[in-house]
Amino acid sequence: MEGTGRKFEKLQEIIARHEGKVSHLIAILQEVQQEYRYLPEEVLTYIATALNIPPAVVYGVATFYAQFSLVPKGKYVIRVCDGTACHVRGSEPIHFALRKELGLAEGQQTTGDLQFTVETVSCLGACGLAPVVTINDQEVHGQMTPEDVLRVLRAIKAGESQEERREAHA
């Protein structure tokens, strides 16, 4: 519960740092999404109140940009680059393999347990490494194949269950 309290304090701090400027709306949403991992409706209403703009405007901006999500994302956000270079070197099968492995239905991006989100991105500008997959925008995996990406995925899963065991142990 301390967590949510901190988030709310952070939310206020972000708005204050941007001096409630409407022109900073996108930056505010970016920073808030970092805190909450998505943009909850009530938080957007709060931002609209603080910036004194109609909530419909905030909703319009939040749904326009691909970066924003109004539903919770997974702990691990896996982005498959589908830029031209990646596409011609086979990014689609990688995307399919991931979705299949995680059992995502059509239109579904995030697994039910909120562990994984699979997205495509139009170009990461790392075309020399095509096809490219990133995990939480931190790890970059280049020259992927469907088999490689499943190995990466399983490694994350293994790390997770190890962590769980550790937690259970503790």
Partner: peptide
């Protein structure tokens, strides 16, 4: 002006 969920400030235990 608008209906909707409140902002959770702290969860409950």
């Amino acid at each position: 002006r608008i209906s909707g969920k409140p902002v959770e400030v702290n969860g409950r235990r």
